[in-house]
Amino acid sequence: MLQLKEGEKEEILACVKEVLGENSKTHENLIPVLQQVQKKLGYLPVLAMEKIAEGLDVPAADVFGLATFYNQFRLNPPGKHEVKVCLGTACYMTGGDITLESFERRMEIKESETSPDRHYSLERVACVGCCSLAPVVVVDDQVEGKVTPTRVDGIMLELEADRDGPAGEESGPKEGGNSEQD
């Protein structure tokens, strides 16, 4: 299980408190609350889910159920760079699966995983709705169209170049595509 780093616990508690303060405390608000907390933290830590369950008076088992049901929610911190490979029909037919495999090979992780150094995470998405530009890849929330296997190499080079400095050590979840805290 993921160990929280120093200060992370306080950060999580403060975040949940803030979000709960901004929403009326009803079961109906469970999804918006989870979305807002994830947007701030990058993922849904166990502690956050517990506190949300308490705050909205919902069984914790249901919060967990919901968080594991929907694709959007993640229970582990995302990598610094998030690559989503679209596998909609048009993308699949133009080689989206080959693109995904190329990323898996280059990142040395499988889909829906984060690399051990938290530099990358790789996901598949059902369809981002840019079918005329297939195959499509979303790199840190930027949509890239017509991604050939050679372009995968290019994207990897760009992401690798961002490895310098103390990244990965202290930043982790905060610098993903979801970051809103400057």
């Binding site: 889910m49 369950a53 069984p59 088992a61 919060v63 967990f64």
Partner: peptide
């Protein structure tokens, strides 16, 4: 839920991975 009014277990995950489980497994 209804008889014991505890709320310890529920369904989690989706599709083939659907299971009956507790909070955080």
């Amino acid at each position: 839920r209804v008889e014991a009014e505890v709320g310890a277990i529920g369904f989690s995950n989706r599709g083939l991975k659907r299971v009956v489980t507790t909070f955080n497994d």
